[in-house]
Design a binder for these strands. Structure first.
Length: 654
DNA sequence: ACTAATGTCCTTTTT
DNA sequence: GGACATTAGT
C-alpha cells in the first residue's frame, strides 16, 4: 500500500491533523474517533517529510501505546521506510530517566542512580517514619502509602502542602508539621542513596528545563514533540513541554477532556483546556466515531452531554441489568460471555470492566471454577509480589551499592539478620566504601554480592545465579514455593531480553508488565482469554462486548468521591470511558445488594445498593432494562412457594 | 535480637 | 482481607 492511499483513508479532519504544518497543534479527539490512527499518520507524515526518527519525541501513557503507534506508523509509511524505530518514545517517566542519565553529571547524580518504584519509595518513607518516632504516637500517623501519596500530590501540583492536605487528605491535616519533617528527611535520604522516585524523575527533568543551557541542549534533540492523552498530564509535565518547545512550534498534543480520569494523580484538565490560548495553537476536533454503534453512543452521550455520532446506526440497545447480588452478577456475565463465544465472538474480544480491582473477586472465582481463561489488568501486579521484590532487591543493590532500601531487603533474607542486623552490616559496608568484596554479612551472600557487584561480571547469567542463591530462602519463607518459583523463572526469562542490568531494572520500575500474560509471552498468545480490567487500565482499548460491574452508587461513583462535585464529575467521565470501550454489546450491571467486608459491626453483612446517580431517566431511556436472577436465587424463591414448578424453572434457564 | 502470633484499623484508580 | 502495631515466645 502506498503512503498516499493510506492518507486517503482518513476523513478530512483527520487528514488535516496528520498533515498539519505550522505552530502548535491541539487535536481534540472524542472517544473512538481514530485518535491513535491519526497520530500514527502524523508520525508517518513527519517521517516521510524527512524528519529523522530520532528527532521525534513521542510521549504516550504507556510503553504499549508507544509500540502500537510505531507499528502503525511503519505500516502507513509502507515501503518508503524500511524499518521505523522511534528511539524517543515512551512515558514521561521513562524518557525522563534516559535524559537524566544522559546528563547526570550536570545535575549532581551518579551514573548508577536507582529508580524507586512505588513500593520501594513507600518502604523508604516507612523507615523514616519509624526513625522520626511517628509510628508510636497516641494517635495514628498516616500509613506509608498515604504519606507517599501526599508527597506525590504536592510535588505534581506544585502547590503547598497545606493545599494538598486541605483538598485531598483532610483527615491528615493535623499531622502537617510532622509530614513536612518526614518529607524533608525523605528528600535527604534519597539524595544520599542516589535514588529517584517517580516524582523525582519529573522534578529533575523539570529542573533541567529551567536551566537555560541544559534546556537548549535537550530542546535541540527534537524537532517534534507529540503527546498522547494530554488531558491526563499534570502541571509539572505541562511546564516541561513548555521548556522543550517554548514557542509551541513542533508541538502536537492529543486528548479529550471528557476522558480525564487521573486527577488523583494530580492531572490537570486545565492543561488541555488552556492549551489553545497558551500556545496560540491550531485546533482540530475529531467527532466522528468509528468504534461503536449509535445505540451505544446514545447512552454514553446522554451520560455526559456529548454528541458523538456513528456511521453504524443499527445495533442492540445497551442493557441495564439488575441482579440480586455479586454471585448473580458473576453468573450473568459468565453466561453472556459464553453465549457470545458460541456466536463466534472470541473471549479476548470481550471485556469486563470495574471501578476498583477487587470488584472482580467473585467473578474470578466463578471463572476459575468454570475453567474459563482470563487475564486481569490493573490491581495487584506481578512485581509487587514479595518474592519477586526479593530477587530484584539483590540486583538493585548490586547495581547501586548505596541503595539502602534494596540492601536492607537483601540482607534480611539471611536467617538471623533482621532490621538491627541489617543496619549493622550496612553501616560497616558504608564505612568500607561500598565495596562488595569487603561485605561481611553471611558467607554465601557475600560471595553472591561480590559476583554481582563486580563490574566485570557479564549480565547474562546474573539473574540465574541470584535465583539459585534465593531458592532455599524462598522455600523457607513462603508456603506456595512452587508457584512462586515459577514466577521467578519467568522473571529470569524477561531479564534475558535486556542487554544490560541497568536497562532491565529501570524498565521494571518504570513500565512493569501490566498483566501476568505479558510475562508468559509467546505460549499464551495463541490462547483465547477473557479480559478483566479496571476502567483506568482499559483506557485507549476497545472490545466487541463490554460488561461493566457494580454500576451502583458507592461504586459508580465511588463512595470516596461523593463528597465533592468535581470528584463526582470525574467518576462520571470514568463511567463514560468504560461505556465507550464497547463496539456493539454493552451491559451495565447493578446488584441490588452487595456484601461489605469492612467496618460492619453488626451481623448483617450485606447492604442494599442505591441506584447510581448517573442512571438518570435520560440515560435509562437509551437502554433496555432487564432483571436477572441466577439459578440459586431462583431456587430460593421457589422454595418459599408451593407448588414447585420445575418445568418453568428449567425453561427460564435458557 | 529475631520470629510468630494476635489485635486493631481501615480510603479507589497508576506512572 | 490486608497492613501495621503490639505482644509473647524463642
Amino acid at each position: 500500500m502506498g503512503a498516499m492511499e493510506a492518507f486517503e483513508r482518513l476523513n478530512a479532519r483527520q487528514r488535516e491533523a496528520a498533515r498539519f504544518e505550522g505552530g502548535a497543534l491541539l487535536i481534540l479527539a472524542g472517544a473512538g474517533t481514530g485518535k491513535t490512527n491519526t497520530l500514527a499518520h502524523r508520525v508517518a507524515h513527519l517521517l516521510l517529510r524527512g524528519v529523522p526518527p530520532q528527532k521525534l519525541l513521542l510521549l504516550t501513557f504507556t510503553r504499549r501505546a508507544a509500540l502500537e503507534m510505531t507499528r502503525r506508523a511503519q505500516r502507513i509509511a509502507g515501503e518508503a521506510l524500511k524499518e521505523v524505530r522511534l528511539p524517543w518514545s515512551g512515558t514521561f517517566h521513562s524518557i525522563a530517566n534516559r535524559l537524566i542519565r544522559r546528563h547526570c553529571a550536570r545535575v549532581g547524580l551518579d551514573e548508577s542512580f536507582s529508580v524507586l518504584d512505588r513500593g520501594d519509595a513507600a518502604d523508604l518513607i516507612d523507615v523514616l517514619r519509624h526513625e522520626l518516632g511517628f509510628s508510636k504516637a497516641e494517635k495514628r500517623f498516616p500509613r506509608k502509602d498515604t504519606c507517599l501519596a501526599i508527597y506525590s500530590h504536592r510535588v505534581n501540583t506544585q502547590g503547598s502542602l497545606e493545599d494538598t492536605l486541605q483538598a485531598v487528605f483532610p483527615w491528615c491535616a493535623e499531622w502537617r508539621d510532622e509530614l513536612s519533617r518526614l518529607f524533608k528527611a525523605y528528600v535527604e535520604r534519597k539524595l544520599s542513596i542516589q535514588a529517584l522516585d517517580y516524582d523525582d524523575l519529573l522534578l529533575y527533568w523539570h529542573a533541567m528545563m529551567a536551566d537555560a543551557a541544559l534546556a537548549r541542549d535537550i530542546g535541540e534533540l527534537f524537532e517534534h514533540v507529540l503527546v498522547d492523552e494530554y488531558q491526563d498530564t499534570n502541571v509539572l509535565q505541562a511546564e516541561i513541554l513548555k521548556g522543550l518547545r517554548p514557542g509551541g512550534a513542533g508541538l502536537t498534543v492529543v486528548g479529550d477532556d471528557a476522558q480525564a480520569i487521573y486527577s488523583f494523580r494530580a492531572a490537570s484538565v486545565e492543561n488541555i483546556r488552556g492549551f489553545e490560548a497558551q500556545f496560540a495553537a491550531s485546533v482540530v476536533a475529531l467527532e466522528e466515531n468509528y468504534r461503536s454503534t449509535q445505540p451505544v453512543l446514545d447512552a454514553a452521550n446522554a451520560l455526559i452531554g456529548k454528541n458523538l455520532s456513528s456511521k453504524r446506526k443499527s445495533g442492540a440497545r445497551p442493557r441495564y441489568v439488575t441482579v440480586a447480588d455479586d454471585q448473580a452478577q458473576a453468573e450473568y456475565v459468565v453466561r453472556n460471555v459464553l453465549e457470545a463465544r458460541e456466536r463466534g465472538v472470541l473471549l479476548r474480544r470481550q471485556a469486563v470492566l470495574f471501578r476498583s480491582s477487587h470488584h472482580s473477586d467473585v467473578l474470578e472465582l466463578e471463572l476459575v471454577r468454570r475453567n474459563i481463561p482470563y487475564v486481569k489488568y490493573g490491581g495487584l501486579k506481578f512485581l509487587e509480589a514479595a518474592h519477586v521484590k526479593d530477587l530484584l532487591a539483590l540486583l538493585r543493590w548490586a547495581d547501586n551499592p548505596k541503595n539502602r532500601v534494596a540492601a536492607f531487603r537483601a540482607l534480611q533474607l539471611v536467617p538471623g539478620i533482621g532490621p538491627a542486623g541489617a543496619e549493622r552490616v550496612f553501616t560497616r559496608f558504608e564505612a568500607e566504601g561500598f565495596s562488595f568484596s569487603r561485605l561481611k554479612s553471611a558467607a554465601d551472600l557475600d560471595a553472591l554480592m561480590a559476583f554481582l557487584g563486580n563490574p566485570q561480571t557479564p549480565w547474562a547469567g546474573q539473574m540465574q545465579r541470584a535465583r539459585e542463591w534465593y531458592e532455599p530462602h524462598l522455600e523457607r519463607r513462603y508456603d506456595a514455593a512452587q508457584v512462586r518459583a515459577g514466577d521467578l523463572t519467568q522473571l529470569e526469562r524477561i531479564a534475558s531480553q535486556f542487554s544490560d542490568r541497568e536497562s532491565f531494572l529501570s524498565e521494571m520500575a518504570l513500565d512493569p508488565p501490566q498483566a501476568t500474560s505479558d510475562l508468559a509471552g509467546a505460549p499464551y498468545l495463541d490462547e483465547d482469554y477473557l479480559v478483566l480490567s479496571t476502567v483506568h487500565s482499559a483506557k485507549g482499548q476497545e472490545w466487541e462486548a463490554v460488561h461493566i460491574l457494580n454500576v451502583s452508587d458507592g461504586n459508580f461513583p465511588s463512595e470516596f468521591a461523593t463528597g465533592r462535585a468535581d470528584l463526582v464529575e470525574e467518576e462520571r467521565r470514568l463511567l463514560y470511558v468504560a461505556m465507550t470501550r464497547a463496539k456493539t454489546d454493552l451491559h451495565l450491571l447493578s446488584p441490588l445488594k452487595y456484601y461489605v467486608t469492612q467496618q460492619s459491626r453488626m451481623g448483617d453483612r450485606h447492604v442494599y445498593g442505591a441506584k447510581s446517580r448517573f442512571m438518570t431517566r435520560e440515560v435509562l431511556a437509551c437502554m433496555e432494562e432487564i432483571a436477572f436472577y441466577d439459578s440459586k436465587e431462583a431456587e430460593a424463591k421457589e422454595a418459599t412457594k408451593t407448588p414447585v414448578d420445575v418445568a418453568s424453572r428449567l425453561r427460564s434457564m435458557w
